[in-house]
């Protein structure tokens, strides 16, 4: 029969095999990720009734969200904290990636990367809590400084933005190191020799050859640190003492204790749109470094 052979021809194509193989995973992602994200988007345009969501189109949630001074202040704080964390993390990470890529013997590289990633896989909550122990009023740093006699009264180092930034910079370190490392590894070492043979100094070779070629990794590192830190819930709660909430804490409050799901959704969508715009802007600014990349 004709349709049978046609069916066989279709099922034998590479594209069909690819779709068939990827379909269980893709289906799961569509059901458990795409559909819920679409639902949140829809909810943000619905009305909140008592314990129920009224399916009527309204822009009120967004008007409420953006006219709320507290939301604007919290969003601003989240952006500043995430920006600061990203800057600190990437600046601290670049020399490490550079060291491992250029100065560590090839056979020892994976051992270094393993060492760098281990702390990342250990309990996130306990790591965050231990920063509270390190930075606390009678914590490790203060005890050490008091013991040596540098200071007389302990510093107040918790419950502020820098403490949140240090904790998050610690948590996201491997996320920044690995993409930069990968892009440094791809650099053809002959290019560096060429630069120096043509009379550039080491510094200039670094600035004019190494750094531009490493930029795709830096851009990836910035995005992979910036986007998730905006949504961090634990660190503002533990290190900020609950007094410096970020967007995630506000979303949680609307979603669970206050049970206003449409407003919570509108806050979540607003925050994600702002984050996405900033990320696109950042990629656009760096587009000349990304050209020619796959």
């Amino acid at each position: 029969m004709d349709w049978k052979s046609r069916l066989r021809r279709v099922t034998r194509t590479e594209a069909f095999s690819g779709y068939a193989l990827v379909s269980p995973t893709a289906l799961y992602a569509i059901l458990m990720l795409a559909a819920p994200l679409a639902t949140i988007l829809a909810f943000s345009f619905f009305k909140d009734g008592y314990l129920v969501v009224v399916r009527e189109f309204t822009l009120q949630n967004y008007i409420d969200t953006w006219s709320d001074e507290i939301f604007r202040a919290i969003l601003m704080r989240s952006l500043i904290v995430s920006g600061l964390v990203t800057l600190v993390t990437v600046l601290l990470a670049f020399p490490i990636a550079y060291y491992v890529s250029f100065h560590v013997e090839a056979s020892k590289k994976s051992r270094w990367l393993f060492l760098i990633t281990i702390p990342f896989w250990t309990s996130y909550l306990i790591r965050v809590f231990l920063w509270k122990v390190i930075l606390g009023y009678n914590g490790v740093v203060n005890s050490a400084l008091l013991g040596v006699g540098i200071i007389d009264t302990p510093f107040q180092m918790l419950n502020n933005v820098p403490a949140i930034a240090i904790t998050l910079a610690h948590a996201y370190a491997p996320f920044a190191i690995l993409p930069i490392f990968v892009s440094l590894e791809k650099i053809d070492r002959a290019l560096l020799e060429a630069g120096q043979d043509l009379g550039e100094s080491k510094m200039m070779t670094f600035l004019r050859v190494t750094l531009p070629l490493a930029m795709p990794g830096v851009v990836a590192a910035v995005l992979i640190v910036f986007i998730p830190t905006i949504g961090d819930y634990v660190t503002p709660e533990l290190i900020g003492g609950g007094k410096l909430p970020m967007v995630a804490n506000m979303i949680q409050a609307q979603m669970l204790p206050l049970d206003n799901k449409p407003l919570g959704s509108a806050i979540a969508v607003s925050a994600m749109v702002v984050v996405a715009l900033i990320s696109f802007g950042f990629v656009f600014m760096n587009r000349r470094f990304l050209r020619g990349q796959k």
Binding site: T25, A26, A29, I30, M32, L33, A34, A35, P36, L37, T39, I40, F43, L223, I224, I227, P228, I230, G231, D232, Y233, A248, I251, Q252, M255, K261, G264, S265, A268, M272
Partner: peptide
Amino acid sequence: LIMLPLVLPEIIVAVSLLVV
């Protein structure tokens, strides 16, 4: 789409799944 949770803040994943 499948790799998206790698960069998406976990709170967004959690909240949207909760609602659904």
